[in-house]
């Protein structure tokens, strides 16, 4: 050993067959995947002009031309966000409590976990399609979509938090002869409240971003305005909307980090 002067680090995957097999497999996959691209160069060349037009539109965004639509779109988006977050958080409280294995009997647990699973599985936009079909076009379908997604998100995290709480505190309160609601109030709530509020604020942030999307399928909000502006190739309007979305997200993200910082 001491005589050998060349040395290279041992490979991450020790079995050479598996290692080279993975390399070759990755190479084959990549070539197949890139092969499915079907690039249409003529269309791409045409796209370059449009792409440039769009990028330059960021230099002179135009709010004035469709000012009223943009304003109404944002008001609708913010409204949807606020209502959906409030409703979703309110509903997620009981669902989250019910999905905590250390608090409730098995049937309730399964029911609540089922609700969470359904809510988390479908992408928002698909839920939005279904709600638009049910409620008709407009912000109410959007509110329902966002609230539905919020329930899954908040309940799951709340349930996990509750399952992680210090069991001795619950026992201590139970030992005093407290009823179930008193246990919740004195032993559970103090341990999970701060994080729950923090998560609600975080979800508010997510809901705003999502509200900008679900308008594409007719569920209200700024997404509809954005979609229209793209369809009409009004890049200056689209650019101004995108810039405003980025701005609002930055503000809400900063605000939510402030709130979460103070709660900690």
């Amino acid at each position: 050993m001491g005589d050998s002067v060349s040395w290279s680090p041992p490979p991450l995957i020790r079995n050479p067959w598996l290692r080279y097999g993975l390399y070759i497999g990755a190479a084959i996959y990549l070539s197949l995947a890139l092969g499915t691209l079907h690039l249409n160069w003529a269309r791409l060349a045409q796209g370059l002009d449009r792409g440039w037009a769009f990028i330059s539109a960021f230099a002179h965004p135009d709010i004035a031309k469709h000012g009223r639509e943009i304003f109404e779109g944002f008001v609708e988006s913010l409204t949807m966000t606020a209502v959906a977050t409030a409703a979703g958080v309110a509903i997620s409280l009981p669902v989250g409590l019910g999905a905590a294995r250390n608090l409730v009997p098995m049937p309730v647990y399964l029911l609540c976990r089922g609700i969470i699973a359904v809510s988390r599985t479908f992408p928002e936009i698909i839920v939005a399609i279904l709600f638009v079909k049910m409620f008709g076009f407009g912000p109410l379908a959007g509110v329902a979509t966002l609230a539905f997604a919020t329930i899954g998100f908040m309940s799951k995290l709340l349930a996990e938090d509750i399952e992680d709480i210090d069991a001795s505190q619950v026992e201590a309160i139970r030992a005093t002869g407290a009823g179930p609601f008193q246990v919740l109030n004195y032993a559970v709530q103090p341990q999970v409240m701060a994080r729950f509020i923090g998560l609600s604020v975080y979800r508010l942030d997510i809901n705003f971003r999502e509200s900008a999307v679900i308008g594409i399928v007719g569920a209200g909000g700024i997404g509809a305005t954005l979609n229209t502006s793209f369809e009409r190739y009004e890049f200056d309007t689209a650019a101004s909307i995108l810039l405003m979305i980025i701005g609002i997200v930055m503000v809400t993200e900063y605000a939510s980090s402030l709130v979460r910082g103070r709660l900690r």
Partner: peptide, 10 residues
């Protein structure tokens, strides 16, 4: 800030 769907739209 911008969802993949909006990027795709663009």
């Amino acid at each position: 800030s911008i969802n993949a769907l909006i990027w795709a739209l663009l």
